[in-house]
Simulated scan of single mutants.
Amino acid sequence: MKNLILSAIVLLISFLAIQAQEMTSKVGDSKRVKLEQTPGEFTQQTLKLKPGSYIFEVTNKGIDHAVGFVLAPKSDPDAHIQSAYVTKAIAKGATERSNTTVLTKGEYVYFCPLNPTPQYKLIVE
Rank of each mutant, 00 (worst) to 15 (best):
L11Q: 02
L11C: 14
L12E: 01
I13R: 00
S14V: 14
I18D: 00
I18N: 03
I18Q: 04
Q19D: 04
A20C: 02
Q21S: 10
T24V: 07
K26Q: 12
V27M: 04
V27N: 14
K31F: 09
K31P: 00
V33N: 03
L35A: 06
E36H: 12
E36T: 13
Q37N: 06
T38G: 02
P39R: 08
G40P: 11
F42C: 09
T43S: 12
Q44C: 03
Q44A: 13
Q45A: 04
Q45F: 02
T46G: 01
K48G: 01
K50E: 15
K50N: 14
P51G: 09
P51M: 10
G52T: 07
S53K: 15
S53P: 01
E57V: 14
V58L: 12
V58A: 07
V58K: 03
T59L: 05
N60P: 12
N60Q: 10
K61A: 14
K61T: 11
D64T: 13
H65M: 06
H65S: 12
A66F: 06
G68I: 04
F69S: 03
L71A: 04
A72F: 10
A72H: 06
P73W: 02
K74V: 04
K74A: 15
S75W: 01
P77N: 09
P77E: 10
P77S: 09
A79T: 08
A79D: 14
H80F: 12
H80Q: 11
I81Q: 03
I81D: 02
Q82Y: 09
A84C: 08
A84V: 08
T87Y: 01
T87G: 00
